[in-house]
Design a protein around this nucleic acid. Structure first.
Lengths: 104, 104
DNA sequence: CATATATATGATTGTATAATCATATGCCAG
DNA sequence: CTGGCATATGATTATACAATCATATATATG
């Protein structure tokens, strides 16, 4: 049994991990199959599969099967807004915290 | 050394924990001292202090000292937008996932 | 200076998480 | 039916995290 606070935290926690952040970034242009995702983000298929499953079960991704392939897509456009706001905070905060950033 | 992905993930991860979510909620109306925060969210002062420190060092909170008291405040208004978007996702997702929610 | 209040930190413990390797399942083609 | 590709999952390991209790520091006040 869940309360609101835990549920909201779960969503943000799901997004707050580098591998999953890369997945979300890669899914900006729409659904992709696992075989496209894991090479794109540079992770093992096994690890990628687990992170995809976590994002699925926290309600962030949708899953579609097509023959042998499984396609994942971001279910709520708000997810991209959240990620963009995090980017915004990062840029605002850089001067304040003097953090070194690799401009990837 | 940090890249953009890790930094953005760190911000969302910091927000994605129930105790810290409660802290952010409580700080909506502006800065509060630790002695107001921990009874309001129902956590030990010690635990609260640690979470405040984490939020501070991930760049989300600002800290101000006034005599014996330490006041914390949310530094970026985007933080509230993120939390609100998470709430929105939650409400959109309720019917889809049939999750039971205590309406706190 | 002694005491009380506010906050932070050390040490510990249990639990969760991420990554990896190996193996299993499902589905299509020949 | 066999082989190969796509995906998922079991087992393991190392690391990170949250919570708690006890203790330390700092500041204000009598």
């Amino acid at each position: 049994m869940y309360d609101q606070t835990e549920y909201r935290a779960e969503i943000l926690k799901a997004l707050g991990q580098p591998t999953r952040m890369k997945i979300i970034d890669f899914l900006r242009d729409g659904e992709r199959c696992v075989c496209e995702i894991f090479p794109a983000i540079g992770e093992e298929h096994s690890n990628t599969s687990r992170h995809l499953n976590l994002l699925l079960s926290s309600g962030i991704l949708a899953r579609r099967k097509d023959g042998i392939k499984i396609y994942y897509a971001v279910k709520h456009p708000e997810v991209f807004e959240i990620v963009d706001l995090a980017t915004l905070i990062m840029t605002h905060d850089i001067t304040g915290r003097q953090r070194l950033l690799k401009v990837a």
